[in-house]
């Protein structure tokens, strides 16, 4: 029983990071009806930015802020240069274009920073906390990760429910025409979605870096997990992304604990396939996704 609880505890913080990445995917899906497969590529790139800034300043928080800023810029650039012009051309094209962006970013990162895997030291200890006579599979860094995630989820919730920008973004996502007739500058709202997603993804990247290391490809698997969580959560739902992001983290932690960590991608695949099989309505429910 204690092992079970240990495995669960060990999965919470990785689940939180999956949740953040899933949030980024959902933010963009809601605004533009595009699944941004380049999201982890952007997060990888901004994490390299953070790494560079941290090497220069030695400060974790400044590095995080730099990554967030870079994430915002990158999100805006991808939206304006790639997604906006491509969207009305064809639906397969938007998907393919995001993969093009992913490939480009990974190659560019390899050029700029080399292909070697780099470590990213956590700002606080990543060793298990010693409490009540035993070492728990839970570190102060996990606490930090979970804290940042909770703060971010609260912040996003407030943004969407309490602010005009949030309302404009929601309206633009749900019904662009009514939004325009209400005086909302829809294309600007969509851009906000990409900026926001870029920032959330950047935070996820910096948070995951100490456990996954940093290399042009080391976040690929995170894309699979995050996509799984986002789809199971319904792709439209921020709450769903967070819930199933953490859920995915827990399941993966249990599977890795009881069997082997190399099972994780297969488990994610099975979860995804089961969900798509059992809940086809949840998938077909979005009238926007028709036709391809």
């Amino acid at each position: 029983m204690t092992t079970f609880i240990d495995y669960l505890l060990g999965g919470v913080s990785s689940g939180a990071i999956i949740a953040l990445m899933a949030l980024a995917i959902v933010l963009i899906w809601r605004s533009t009806r595009v699944v941004n497969f380049a999201q982890v590529g952007q997060a990888m790139f901004t994490t390299y930015v953070a790494l560079t800034v941290r090497d220069a300043t030695g400060n974790w928080i400044i590095a995080l802020l730099a990554a967030i800023a870079a994430g915002a810029v990158l999100g805006l650039v991808v939206h304006w240069l790639v997604i906006r012009p491509v969207k009305r051309v064809d639906t397969s094209g938007a998907i393919i274009a995001t993969f093009g962006v992913l490939i480009s970013l990974q190659a560019l990162a390899g050029m700029l920073w080399g292909g070697d895997t780099r470590g990213y030291a956590p700002p606080v200890s990543n060793d298990g906390i010693q409490l009540a006579g035993r070492i728990w599979p839970f570190s102060w860094y996990d606490v930090l990760v979970i804290g940042v995630t909770i703060a971010l989820v609260i912040g996003l919730t407030l943004l969407f429910t309490r602010t005009n920008i949030g309302l404009a973004m929601r309206a633009s996502a749900f019904n662009p025409e009514v939004a325009r007739l209400s005086g909302v500058r829809v294309s600007r709202s969509l851009a906000y979605g990409w900026i926001l997603a870029g920032m959330v993804g950047a935070i996820a990247g910096v948070l995951v870096a100490p456990t996954s290391q940093v290399s042009p490809n080391s976040f690929d698997i995170l894309l699979v997990f995050a996509f799984t969580a986002a789809v199971i959560g319904g792709l439209d739902s921020l709450v769903g992304a967070v819930t199933f992001g953490i859920g995915t983290g827990l399941v993966i932690s249990l599977v890795s604990g009881y069997s082997d960590s190399s099972n994780a991608p297969v488990v994610a695949l099975v979860l995804l396939a089961l969900n798509l099989l059992l809940k086809p309505d949840g998938v077909f429910g979005h009238h926007h996704s028709r036709a391809v």
């Binding site: 309302l167 929601r170 009514v178």
Partner: peptide, 29 residues
Amino acid sequence: VRMGLALVPEGRSTIPDLTVEENLRLGGL
């Protein structure tokens, strides 16, 4: 619409996922 001409399009042009108050707030954001 900001110049003063507002359209109520065909077919109950509200946003179902928003509350009544949010729908109204949207109109004069």
